[in-house]
Nucleic acid binder design. Sequence first.
DNA 1: TTGTACGCGTTATCAT
DNA 2: ATGATAACGCGTACAA
Lengths: 339, 339
Amino acid sequence: LAGVSPTTVSHALSGQRPVSAATRRRVQDAMEQVGYSPRRAAQNLAMGSTRLLGLIVPDISNGFFAELAKGVEEAAIEAGYNVLLCNSAFNHERELLYLETIRSRAVDGVVYAAGSPTSHREMVDSLGSIPVVLVDEDVLGSSACSFVSDNAEGGRLAAEHLIGLGHTRAIVVSTTGLGSSDDRAHGFATAWQSHGLAGPVVVDGDFTYDGGYAAMAAALGSESDRHFSAVFATNDLMALGVISWLLDAGLDVPGDISVVGFDDIEIAGIIRPGLTTVKQDVRLLGVRAAGALIAALAAGQSPPPTRHVQSVELIVRGTTSRHVTKESDGPAHSSHCHR
Amino acid sequence: LAGVSPTTVSHALSGQRPVSAATRRRVQDAMEQVGYSPRRAAQNLAMGSTRLLGLIVPDISNGFFAELAKGVEEAAIEAGYNVLLCNSAFNHERELLYLETIRSRAVDGVVYAAGSPTSHREMVDSLGSIPVVLVDEDVLGSSACSFVSDNAEGGRLAAEHLIGLGHTRAIVVSTTGLGSSDDRAHGFATAWQSHGLAGPVVVDGDFTYDGGYAAMAAALGSESDRHFSAVFATNDLMALGVISWLLDAGLDVPGDISVVGFDDIEIAGIIRPGLTTVKQDVRLLGVRAAGALIAALAAGQSPPPTRHVQSVELIVRGTTSRHVTKESDGPAHSSHCHR
DNA sequence: TTGTACGCGTTATCAT
DNA sequence: ATGATAACGCGTACAA
């Protein structure tokens, strides 16, 4: 060193106790000279805290989780934390491996975006006393702090929008079993029925572009039973798949069928016509989730088991239009509905 | 503990020296009972290695870097490493902060995707002896190991494709100063000129959808000097912006103008017509970069300063078509070209 | 205002 | 095949 004891160096940096200005200068100069910086590993060992946050996501290359990661990182760096990227790749073994990593690295807290409805409970429990916040998906039976978008409200907004345009028959393309998707579908159906309309048919499909395409194909490919003029897909990628299928089937969007999505991903505003969708601010969800976690950490506690619901917004673009009842509105046999 | 010395416990786990089967069992049982797992911080301190990789990206929510992160994580976890997410947000101060983080956390190695042409050299140098691999962008004057897609070849493929379709006049929308974009534009121009065609006009624009749109607007909005039938944009988002502008200007794609992009992002295959583009495998780029880094780490060295170039592939979709010279091929005053 | 001594949990070295 | 001891680098209670 340059003149003083290790103790003084430590306090000069942490400010935990008074250090004379002259001494502090000498310490800082010495640091500059040798390019010294405290080794985190040693600090961890001495203090018990790592200032490291674990971020568990199923697929970081998925735009949703990438956006979430951005928000989490933002809040983390702001508070002097770093983020350990844990990509479970929808693989349970990988998830368990990361659980072990999180324990052995003594991560201070975890932001857990499960992304699929499998065995969350077990995961959350096995974190033991490590503080966790859940994002996007609630975990049944677990009293953990969670941050979700108002999925049901989003479904309701989509329904009200379509109803306002005169639509009376719709189908919903949703990924059954996925909490967020179910909530969106349920919110849509509830609003739909509250207007005295016949409950929308729910079609199951993967939470992807192909899933949306396949769902439409499976539900409507063989039969010509198109008693609907609108589709609500529980995410934008599915909605794009739905639109592709409709176009391939020779139908016009929104001329024949209106389509509403969910998320407001970048493509939604790029395609022509633009996709009408329910926008959720995923980055902000990440910022808030990590913020709550960090606040709890600062207080030496786990975050309170509150369910934080973030509002969503309907973005009206070009894939929805007023429904007009016309002769060509469906296959011949459906016209008896209008008698 | 349960019966033996700390030394034996350590060796029972590491296998660094023979331990009797009975003893190993007792150790394992004891571990299960108390849910013990070695604290990484202490291992770091004792061994000097953290098995942590730093991943520096400018924007994790950008599909390119998210995909890259996925590949890096994959290779890392495979080799028992973890990934520290460093999102610089295109902010130099943030980048310096992360540099300090990387040093203090004693990260074993760094995967550095600079993403912009500012001050890389300084960054790489200040990492000191920490092994680095560069991804996507080379760093001038730095003899670091780098992994890039064959950008020039991609540009060439795009040019050859358009030339094969009979196009003779093209413009290139590129982000000047961005190495990868410049390489793509240069590869295109070189191939173009090698066929004796008049060099393509290069228009500058941000590396985004809006950048592509604005570039077209700036270059062609006021004048009607459309002496071209094809556009090569150096990434897909820009290409989408270009297409949007063309459509807004009342032009047909590919009827009037053919458009080629670069990257093959998901949207490219979703939009109608599909975007003809040059595909690069970003995930694989990440896997290879991290793999080389880890291999070097295992050998106790820095990765050799080789420039690894990964091949790219032309994906022909619907935004390119044969160029036919017709009356309506341009504004009236341009027809004198055909005399 | 500064210094001393100890502990954090693990591994390397040497000894048995 | 196992045990004892000394680091690793830092924070902090305690003493000065």
